[in-house]
Design a protein around this nucleic acid. Sequence first.
DNA 1: TTGCACAAGCTAGCATGTCAGTTCAACATG
DNA 2: CATGTTGAACTGACATGCTAGCTTGTGCAA
Lengths: 248, 248
Amino acid sequence: MSGAATGSRALATHPPERGGAVAPDTRARASKAGHVYREIKEAILAGTLQPGAPIDKAALCEKLGMSRFPVTAAINRLAFERLVTVEPQHGSFVARIALRDVRECMLVRRAIEGDIAAEVARRAGPDLAEALLRNLRYQGAAVAAGDRAGLYALDVAFHGAICGAVAFHHAEAMLDGLRARLERTRRILMTPPGRMAETVAEHEAVAAAIVAGDPDWARTAMRRHLARTAALFDGFAAENPALFFTVP
Amino acid sequence: MSGAATGSRALATHPPERGGAVAPDTRARASKAGHVYREIKEAILAGTLQPGAPIDKAALCEKLGMSRFPVTAAINRLAFERLVTVEPQHGSFVARIALRDVRECMLVRRAIEGDIAAEVARRAGPDLAEALLRNLRYQGAAVAAGDRAGLYALDVAFHGAICGAVAFHHAEAMLDGLRARLERTRRILMTPPGRMAETVAEHEAVAAAIVAGDPDWARTAMRRHLARTAALFDGFAAENPALFFTVP
DNA sequence: TTGCACAAGCTAGCATGTCAGTTCAACATG
DNA sequence: CATGTTGAACTGACATGCTAGCTTGTGCAA
């Protein structure tokens, strides 16, 4: 009986192919593994779990009230994102921040976001332009108020709006991964008070280029902006070597 | 090729604590999950498992002689790479190729590899130059012999040599993921016989720029080359719409 | 006191068992 | 004959027990 059933089904299946969705969170909707994944990731990004710290699976299982399976799956995903390193038969640890990794992430981010900005400039709609300009007005207000955290949030939203304008799922996922690795230092760093106005000016150049529909200008502006940001990271790292994991 | 020359350099620069390398294949050396992971991936890339085909876990377990755990772990990894889509309580399927994904992958690849080429041009050593030029000589021979498969292998090696010259682990991993998604179409595509000489010429321009140590030239040459490749993909997709999954 | 060998404890990887949700087809019913 | 219902079977998500390998602490010998 089982034989016949499997035979007919296996061959017949898959005409539907319902969704073209490749979304990463498709399965994360209500899964325990997805939950603990976000939990650990947030803890790492927030700094609650410091770089190099061991991840106690058993404690996590007990705390979250689930078995080791979802926890293991989540850690495997994080290992794939390079946010944790798992050493077989030894333990799982929060990945350390290597300065060279930060530099590399910024290089890749500059490359991708620069080209995305150019692409967005090609097919920008009036609604995006309006959203960017509104965001910029808020940024100006944040600078005037000296609100670093607010500016940071607006910064993230600004870049998110641009990257979201084109539906590049893979690129978005990649930038997300990059951002996740950068976030840990970024939360400490933010934008130095003296550089806030400068940052907004760079954003304005990017927005102007996109609104003007000039791809090359947009790419250049975005790359310049991210190069400055990378320089900020570097400077910060030079001043705070203890926070980073320099290769011995 | 990178062997003797890179030996001293690579070891000197990056022997950070034992876990320095988090490469996905580090743990895969002898792990069952890693084995089945490579197995399925290869099957997908080679086309043995066609896009949209269901993946029968049970059959895989039996065929490979292991329990469901390694198979599940491997499929989870592949799902993270977007090579398979897993629908909870329904089944796991080989991801379809979406034309927009191919375009997007090429855009990202062009962005990253362009900047990497520029970076490599900055710090290129004589050993890399020699390797590239030797590779180019082989490419010329492959063209002369009309060996498409050989040229393809040399193409991969050429790009690999450039990207491997800088130790950008994250970028390499990303490009690997991109390449994996592109590979399926690429194996069908390869380089059209009429374009082989053109491809080599583009490679020669890239190599010349790197050897000359001119970052901007290198970036431009690499971007031009990858733009051409993207155009090839597009043309192929236009001629063979049935092979692709056009998103609704 | 110092160096080494051994064993105990911990870890991730793996095997197996169970549960819940979905799909499809046979069946009863209008 | 069309249609709504129900049941079986398949699937992935999850729980739990076991195994192999690394780390480390301890005791013994030089």
